[in-house]
Amino acid sequence: MDSSFTQVPLTIAVYPHFMDHCFAGKVVFPAVEALKILAGLIGERDFFTSAFAPGHMADARFNKFLVLEPGQETIDALCNIRPIDDTRISLSLATRFSSKNGAMTRIREHCTATFYAKTEPVPNLSPVHAHECEEPVFKVATDSIYSELVPFGPAFHSIKDELRLARSGAYATLKAMPDDPDDPFKTMLGSGFPLDGAFHAGCVWSQRFFGVVAFPVGFDKRIIYKPTVEHQDYTARVIPQYQTHGTLGFDIWITDKQGDLCETVSGAMMRDVSGGTITPPAWIREGIHSCSYFSA
């Protein structure tokens, strides 16, 4: 596979439920949907000589929000494709935008990821992943999460019941909400709602233990072992790993009702993307006297 660079125009459907995915008063295209579109493009175009494993991706970055307008039905986008070798290919989802005076047109990348043509064996769940913690737990009701902490509309209320927070991580029951029936890529990576809900859990954990409203900006690696299915329930463990230069790092493990591992995310990066203009409500910090959690 050579190192040539290819740019492919795309028309992306905007489904009605996307209008419930909001940040700071703006509707933003979900990052999990962007990854699904990139994986679908690889599957359609047969880039690899070996078998393609759509659920193995790395070095994902959610560079810039892709803002949607009310009532918008499609997105005119570009996919930038850069083969790395016979087993890896890098793709990015981008759009064109004009300068303020309209004199120049530029490209803005929104999501980038490297996909691998290989699979990995399912790891054994260690006790920290397989069982609830024995630490004091702070419980947050779903209504409070989606009215005050992660103010998304009903279509993205992926966390069920209550979210359990401890210093060692966040523990959530997740619902794979229904995808649009017309989505051609709805089964490409499984449902994106469980991972999106795990990001919500990480956001709430960040608010409680660090006092910041942290949203995902990328991850080091994601592996899907058993694609999640819409309408089904899952369990997520969101485990803090590091903090550096304002970025919080987490590992995420998502399992099904049988306890089977469905997917993992290593090095999920979350940070305040509001420039400090959005802050947590005081009650989520109840009983917390220091922001210091990580040793380094």
Rank of each mutant, 00 (worst) to 15 (best):
C203Y: 01
D182L: 12
G202M: 04
S168A: 02
F199W: 14
D179H: 13
L174N: 00
T173G: 14
P178F: 11
K175L: 15
V204Q: 05
G218H: 06
T187Q: 13
V204I: 14
A198V: 09
K160V: 07
K160H: 11
P216E: 07
S158T: 12
A201G: 09
F193A: 10
F215T: 10
R164S: 15
A166I: 00
Q207A: 13
H200G: 07
V204W: 03
A201E: 12
M188L: 10
R208Y: 02
E162G: 04
V212P: 08
P184N: 05
L165N: 04
L165V: 03
K175T: 11
A198R: 04
R164P: 07
L174F: 08
H200D: 13
V204N: 02
L189A: 08
F193M: 11
D180T: 11
D161T: 11
V212K: 07
R164G: 05
K160Q: 15
C203M: 13
V212Q: 03
D196H: 03
V212F: 01
D183H: 14
V212W: 00
K160G: 01
K186G: 05
S158Q: 12
A166R: 04
H200A: 07
F210H: 15
P216H: 10
A170F: 07
M188E: 10
F185K: 12
R167V: 10
P181L: 02
S206I: 00
G190F: 14
T173W: 09
F185Y: 14
F185S: 12
D180V: 09
D182K: 12
V204C: 06
S191Y: 08
F193N: 06
D161Q: 15
C203R: 03
K186E: 06
L174Y: 08
F209T: 00
A176R: 05
P184K: 01
H200E: 01
M188H: 09
Q207C: 15
A198H: 05
F193R: 03
S158Y: 04
F210R: 15
F219G: 04
D183A: 06
